[in-house]
Amino acid sequence: MKRAREELRARIGALEGGRRLARASVDGGEIDRWLGGGLARGRVHAVTGPGATAFVSMLCIRLRGPILWCVVEGGPFSPLHPPGFAALGLDPYRLVMARAANETAALGAAETGLREPGLAAVVVETAGGVRSVHGRRLQLAAESGEGLGFVLFAGVGEMGWAESGWEAAPVPARGGALRWRWTLRRVRRTRPHEWLVEWNDAASALRVASPVGDGVPGSIGSG
């Protein structure tokens, strides 16, 4: 059944005639399989929720190259604290922060960064997500440069333009490993889903926790 599905997916991919997208691994396991190998590069992904910063930084640890982080001065996000990234295992020296006076300038900087090959990822912080027209512009830039883009928002916003849309919320760790609930709100070519993920501090790696739910190991319900 699974094999048949994969084959079908591959055939659809071939029919679409699109080049195979490079993928950035998320957990090296179940989530990657669900997404067809990981998050697509050359695409922009939307991330919201209080665990969004952790979501992006954990993904970037395994990617190579600098990370361009575009922020808006006086925006809804608090300033980044580099020692926290180092504690997580992401070398803060890889972060290059572009501070823009307004959101349009920040999106413009992200667009420029996405066109540039060789960056691990481009992150842009926005107040309420981006409008479709800006989202498409980012998407086009990402396609031309094979960049991996993330749009962080503070609230609820439109994600229709994004390759995938995520909501990341911390889950009580109760003294154990750090945990989050990651909800895949939308994604092209596959269905939304939800996972409980856990951070392995020693290995600086992510894994899907607690095998409970609807038959897919590690899932806690699908939506």
């Binding site: 952790a54 300033p79 020692p83 926290g84 504690a87």
Partner: peptide, 14 residues
């Protein structure tokens, strides 16, 4: 630099 094993936040309020 990373807090010497102590937890450090990803974001710090200005």
């Amino acid at each position: 630099a990373a807090g010497g094993g102590n937890p450090r936040p990803l974001r710090l309020l200005a």
